[in-house]
Design a protein around this nucleic acid. Sequence first.
RNA 1: GCGGGUGUGGCGGAACUGGUAGACGCGCUAGGUUUAGGUCCUAGUGGCCGCAAGGCCGUGGGGGUUCGAGUCCCUUCGCCCGCACCA
Length: 853
Amino acid sequence: MARYNAQETEKKWQTFWDENAIFATPARCNDEKYYILEMFPYPSGRIHMGHVRVYTLGDVIARYKKAQGLDVLHPMGWDAFGMPAENAAIEQGVHPSKWTWDNIATMRRQLRSMGLSYDWSREIATCSPDYYQHEQTMFLDLLEADLAYRKESSVNWDPVDNTVLANEQVIDGRGWRSGALVEQRLLPQWMFRITAYADELLEGLPTLDQWPESVRTMQENWIGRSEGMQINFSLKGRDDHLTIFTTRHDTLFGASFCAIAPDHPLAKELASNNPKLANFIDECSQLGTTEAALEKADKVGFDTGLVALHPFNRKRELIVFVANFVLMNYGTGAIFGCPGHDQRDLDFARKYGLDVLPVVCPHSCAESEFIVTDKAFTGDGRLINSEFLNGLSVKDAQSAAAERLVQENQGATHTTYRLRDWAVSRQRYWGCPIPVLHCQECGIVPVPRNELPVLLPEDVEFDKPGNPLELHPTWKFIRCPRCGSPAVRETDTFDTFVDSSWYFCRYACPDAETPLDAHALNAWLPVDQYVGGIEHAILHLLYSRFFMRAMRACGHVEFDEPFTGLLAQGMVCHETYSDAKGWLFPEEVEPSQGGALVRRDNQAPVIVGRSESMSKSKKNVVDPETIIGTYGADTARLFILSDSPPERDIEWSESGIDGASRFLQRLWRMVNEPRVPLAAKDAPMPNNVEGPSLVLRRETHRAISDVTNDIEKFRFNRAVARIRELANMIAGFECDDECGSRVVREALETLVQLMGPMMPHIAEEMWQMLGYEPSILNYPWPKPDVGLIATETVTVAVQVNGKLRTTLTLRVDADQGAAKSQALAEPSVVASIRGRDIRKIIIVPNRVINVVV
RNA sequence: GCGGGUGUGGCGGAACUGGUAGACGCGCUAGGUUUAGGUCCUAGUGGCCGCAAGGCCGUGGGGGUUCGAGUCCCUUCGCCCGCACCA
């Protein structure tokens, strides 16, 4: 029996597609365009299953849209700057540039072996000066538009490695490489003014109706707009005051303390002559910079001895604490605590023995009976213990309190955001140089545009701790272009999120001399469908949305929203393995005789960790090249599409890949050795198709309708199931008369076209075997015959008290009265009713008849 | 901790807007073909009771709304993603 040879056939069609430029981006004339984009990969070394998943998803959409006759732009590139390249340099002594470009070469080859429909002529790599020089131009534009500025901000400093650490490099407060205790250090940083667009970014969300609701909600919460008040509390014995932000000024009479952030200027000032406080602040900073760590930590405070006076009653004195749960970068970095109506404040008050005075009484509760014990009341109610606010609702009390505070000049309404400005400085080598310099005389000077690009020097060493740009003997030192005085280059490079905030625009005009070409942008942008991991739901997508608005302000683009549709695909997860020396790849591990996992090389025991999203840092990745080498790309693609819907996380397992492979063999045999002889290619369809042939025809056209619908809605797992059903139907078809031959040809041709976007190589091969000229993509997507889809009968469930008793086969839209009597005559129905009175009968036409007794 | 998800047979999952739970596949069981075989074909496969007809139970746990709940509401548990310097 002949077998389908995936290796040979896949190579054949990949060569054909290349030589005939099947995936060249069409020049836009007047046809409808479709820009399909998957998030570009970081060139970490080799592709992993997460890549296979996302690029397969995108490719199915791209090929389907092309078959629908749209002008498709489907590009690919590399998010090529970033930390791992520098780690490789330190650990393996390879230059980041070489490491990155080698990885790109490997991964490009691997992606090509998947048979993805990219226009490779538009490939970009962010580490190439061809790309990053334009980013430097745009930065100068942002600087002129006052959307970029410099500000001190706190970073994780490793005093031994002399370097800034990413949060993930800080483990239990220590540097991952040096093990040194990490310090918080203030460094001047370049920032992007994303907060200037907070409202616009918020307002844009409802227009993104082709995004998942969950992502929009996450962004909304991330921006975190809240309307409240800034209130000034006088400080006893001082001339200045403490400004706090609150959204609950209605509970002001319930205040029992104030708290400021450990890095609040006032805290620093008080600490200068209070060593204990200085020590406390120091301890707070040990927690690091991540919000999760701060929020999870025990709530602790330090009594500064300072006293704030209640704005409505200056006789009431409130202790000012420094507290670890108050964040400097939210609001004003200072709060008043109302333990009765805020859980965190309540926990804090109980811990430090502070008053708990309830000021909002629930509507359902008498004032005398309302007490707060260990649960703060945050709902609506009426005000109590609050002088002029007594009796008011929360909302009315807020207005009244606000009015009084404004009147007495003690506060003002204020809107604050959780969103902070975007820190884009990185004290690292492998990134886009920030094109400014620091002159002894003039201060910060932008690099003149005619001197761009500022190229990253290649001759750097990684043998000393710290940023190699900082230590470079010549690159760093320069003369000021304005005054000629000695100056140094900015040695910070950009956060790689900057690179990925506009790459999708550059694909439209990869060779333009300016950053972006208006004509090309208007032709292709925005991206119609973006596909990528849900882990990017907030930062990357929000930064890109901001960047488009910033670019619009600078005249580079004419639209706001970069991505019309978003498919946020779930993670590919896998168990993690480790031993004393660190993480292990799954292929370094094998089951021992006892069943426990051991190292393949020395049989040493392995710790099996829980399943997590595949990531290079934890080595819990499966090598797709092995899978593709063994089974072929089509099988890998089919497998990855088959079971789970795209949005869901999938657990990688080897089981099932054999099944996918068998299905491919089966499909191929159906055309290679058809059970029923196939009619000639152009033979007309007889007009008296009936019996089993009619059944197959109907099934074929229903499959067209269902699969089309499923692909449109990205339910590829269902589309695969539907294709399998059609294949099963064809395989069981035995009618070998003239009519059957014609119908089975139609069914097979349909099958091949429907599976084409998912299994493109074997589909091209089968299409050719059916007598057609390649490429299958040049043939229009099949359309269902509506007359054949319509059904004549339906199966209706018959229930008694909601429990299924039997089913009836009825004509569609059958007479309800007749259906009712037929149902009541059913023996199983009669038996279930057992002579009881029928109270009512609910009939849902074509679905259910429910007898209630 | 906060925000967003998610939970259905032995396994991955299906079930459109509240209307026959388990499509499709993996695995497993039995039979058959050819073969030395992992190939291929046929049948079966949620659990319990029953010779059978059939019955009862069943969508993480508990409660509720409804003629009817996997689907809606409340509550609770597990897991996943994000939390601003991983990408």
